[in-house]
Design a protein around this nucleic acid. Sequence first.
DNA 1: ATAATAAAAGATAAAAATATCTTTTATTAT
DNA 2: ATAATAAAAGATATTTTTATCTTTTATTAT
Lengths: 145, 145
Amino acid sequence: MAIFSKTCEYAMRAVFYVAQRSHEGSRVGIKEIAEHINSPEPFLAKILQKLSREGLIQSVKGPNGGFYFDAASLNRPLANIVTAVDGDNIFTGCGLGLTYCSESNPCPLHEDFKKVRNQITHMLNHTTIGKFNMGLIKGKFTLNK
Amino acid sequence: MAIFSKTCEYAMRAVFYVAQRSHEGSRVGIKEIAEHINSPEPFLAKILQKLSREGLIQSVKGPNGGFYFDAASLNRPLANIVTAVDGDNIFTGCGLGLTYCSESNPCPLHEDFKKVRNQITHMLNHTTIGKFNMGLIKGKFTLNK
DNA sequence: ATAATAAAAGATAAAAATATCTTTTATTAT
DNA sequence: ATAATAAAAGATATTTTTATCTTTTATTAT
Ligand code: FES
Ligand code: FES
């Protein structure tokens, strides 16, 4: 069990890859994205379709078409992608799976888990989609291994 | 998507409930546990069977039988339960789902994600199975809502 | 206009996680 | 010994997640 679903992992990797290529001024086809982030192509297509419908990623059909991010989208927090794909349970849910988390009627893990949740929230709110463009271009980071 | 699998959530809740009752000197039947932690009984049975096989929880069959923890088991970290049920991905895995996490060839989230992972690890290693017994007995914590 | 390209949409399929049911085995009390 | 109890084990079912395939629609270049 990983923290994020496969769907969400693919989404985040794809988003970072497309962001980097957008920064360079290109659009990217689904095939190229899938190859570079090591994900099943048709499954990734579905994920990006969803993000596209929600306006989180830009796309154009036809020759020279593909996915890209405009300036506004590059500045969105990764949290938006996660929420679109996995919902907001990771930001608000109970660590022991109770139907809701509450301060006044907490589960045993509540105090400790809150810290974990806050750190995740901080991480996803403070990393923008375009944050790692330079690092990715310079080969400082990897998206497929 | 929650941090832990349903299986793991039920396991943790069950373990806290049984620990509390063990502290009071009782054994608890699967039915009673399932009712008190609000989980599907036969599914929970499978989970506890697994923990039992691994020696993480004690059980006896027959009349007055049920599950309980001995003193040594009460002092084990919750991490042992999580590992038995969900494996160790949550302690070592990559946040973006790459096949392994590495310092020298990191994913973009690596630095931030490491902190999250460390906090989860700390939480699960420092809470023992019996840690919340008093709080549970006094009704300070809940396991079903 | 036409042909080529690439995403969008819809329909299926496979695998994994979650859940249930039935039979067997061990333990205890009588 | 016997009957009652409760977990263990094995087989099966359902649901959700992950993955694939086919058809349609929009865009671009010629
Ligand atoms: S009640 Fe469980 S994390 Fe808040
Ligand atoms: S490489 Fe992704 S978390 Fe370490």
